[in-house]
Amino acid sequence: MSEKINIPEHYGRWEADITIGKKEDHVTIGYWRDGCKGCGICVDVCPKKVWEIIEAKDKWNGQVVQVTDAAKCIKCMLCEIHCPDFCIKIY
């Protein structure tokens, strides 16, 4: 679709073509793993189960999150707004 979006380089990147209602769109999800504290709020607030908790031995509480399927995203922005640690960007 449109040109590639620049996201800060320390963010991991997921992309997908999506349809919101009848509208065709494209989503770019940025996720900063090093800053993530694995609190799970993004998993809880997302209405489409885009996020899931996974094990991470390098984190003190043993978990981080990852994107299950970017194509499910509806750009509601709830995860971006409610992540207390500036780790999520939805474009």
Binding site: I7, P8, G30, D34, G35, K37, G38, C39, G40, I41, N61, E80, I81, H82, C83, P84, D85, F86, K89, I90, Y91
Partner: peptide, 29 residues
């Protein structure tokens, strides 16, 4: 469109010291 919090933050001080999931971060944002 993603919000550019970096513009307003001292990035060398981030991640902040608040506990995982602490509500203060949400209010600050």
């Amino acid at each position: 469109m993603a919000f550019e919090y970096e513009k307003y933050l001292r990035m060398d001080k981030i991640p902040h010291l608040w506990c995982p999931g602490c509500g203060i971060g949400v209010v600050l944002k």
